[in-house]
Amino acid sequence: MTPPEPVVDVRSLHVRFGEVEAVAGVDLQAYAGHATALLGRNGAGKSTTMRVLAGVVPPTAGSVTVAGHDVRTDALAVKRAIGYCPDVGGLVPRATPWEHLQLSARLRRLDDWEARGRDLLERFELGDVAHRVTTGFSHGMGRRLSVVLAALHQPEVLLLDEPFDGVDPIGVEATLDVINDARSRGACVLVSTHLRELAIQACTTVTVLRGGSRVATVTALEMAGEEGARAYRGLLD
């Protein structure tokens, strides 16, 4: 039996911003129906890797394909395939949640999206603020709406960067549901976080980054419990 083709295939990825090398040779494969966590300390290169996968930041070197499309040569096709929750903000300040959904739906040529949009807003307890501008949102509300926007069009690849950061338990629960739904319909999910416990809960595989490079890829079970915590600390040091 031939092994499945990775939906996300990153080989020797390098990203430089001037003198700073944010990502220094990451290799990563993620598969359909699986959720992969990117774990690591601040500045490990998790968010930059996610931005490359989302087609937002072009790679400096290395090859990156997402859903069969090269991010360097076919970024538009990559953007059609992914749903992305960025690590910071991710919301247009003076637009309402509903206007965000409308823009996404229009640019993705979605039909009959409104019922799903409403349902997602309700699940993330954002129904009451659907027509208020996002400037006044709390950090947690912003995170939750970013997950809704990433999940609206049921993308082939779901990229969630720090989706649990500052989110209350109901929001965490709803985000875990979105990840499970995506996996069950065969989507490839990548979750970048520094919260080990939630990464284990949400994902099947864990890739640990340190200093812009991958240091390990293990199953989520291997990162669980006290033993996993010790192993994780060992990988970070």
């Binding site: 992305y84 247009v92 300040p93 965000h100 996404s104 970013s146």
Partner: peptide, 9 residues
């Protein structure tokens, strides 16, 4: 900060 999301569209 919505620029990152908009750029992913």
């Amino acid at each position: 900060r919505g620029g990152l999301w908009r750029e992913s569209l």
